[in-house]
Simulated assay, not measured.
Amino acid sequence: MKIDPKYFFKNISDKDPLRPADLGYFFPAEFHPHGATWLSWPHKEASWPGKIQLIYPAYAKFVAYLAKSERVNILVTDQNMQRFAEDHLDRAGVPMDRILFHHFPTNDAWCRDHGPAFLIPSNPGMSKAIVDWGYNAWGDKYPPYDLDNLIPEKVALHLGLPCFRPGIIMEGGSVDFNGKGAVITTEACLLNPNRNPHLSKEEIETYLKDYYGLNQIFWLKDGIVGDDTDGHVDDITRFVSENKVLTVVESNKKDENYAVLQDNLKLLKSFRLLDGRSLEIVELPMPSPVIYEDTRLPASYANFYIANKHVIVPTYRDKNDEKALDILSGCFPEREVVGVDSWDLIWGLGSFHCLSQQEPAYL
Rank of each mutant, 00 (worst) to 15 (best):
I3K: 05
K6N: 15
F9S: 04
K15Q: 15
K15A: 14
P17F: 06
L18G: 01
A21P: 00
D22I: 07
G24Q: 11
P28S: 13
A29C: 05
A29Y: 11
W38F: 12
L39H: 13
L39K: 06
H43G: 11
K51A: 13
I52Y: 08
I52H: 04
Q53G: 12
Y59Q: 07
A60Y: 09
S69T: 13
V72E: 05
L75R: 08
D78S: 09
E86S: 10
D87T: 14
D90V: 03
R91K: 15
R91A: 14
G93K: 08
M96Q: 12
D108Y: 02
C111D: 07
C111Q: 09
G115N: 02
G125N: 10
G125W: 10
M126P: 01
M126F: 12
V131K: 00
D132E: 14
W133P: 00
G139M: 01
D140C: 01
Y142I: 03
P152F: 06
A156G: 11
G160D: 10
L161Y: 14
M170W: 08
D176G: 01
G179M: 04
A182P: 06
V183W: 05
I184R: 02
L190V: 10
L191W: 11
N194R: 06
P197D: 10
E202M: 02
I204S: 02
Y212L: 06
Q216C: 08
I217Y: 09
D222L: 00
G226R: 09
D228W: 11
V233R: 01
D235R: 00
I236L: 02
V240T: 14
N243T: 15
L246N: 08
T247Y: 02
V248K: 00
S251P: 08
L261G: 04
L267P: 06
K269M: 00
K269S: 03
S278H: 15
E280V: 12
E280F: 05
I281D: 05
M286G: 05
S288R: 09
S288V: 03
P289F: 07
D294E: 15
L297K: 04
P298A: 07
A299H: 10
F304P: 03
F304H: 10
A307E: 02
V313Y: 06
T315I: 03
Y316F: 15
K319W: 13
D326W: 06
D326T: 15
F332G: 03
V338R: 06
G348Y: 10
S356R: 07
Q358D: 12
Y362C: 11
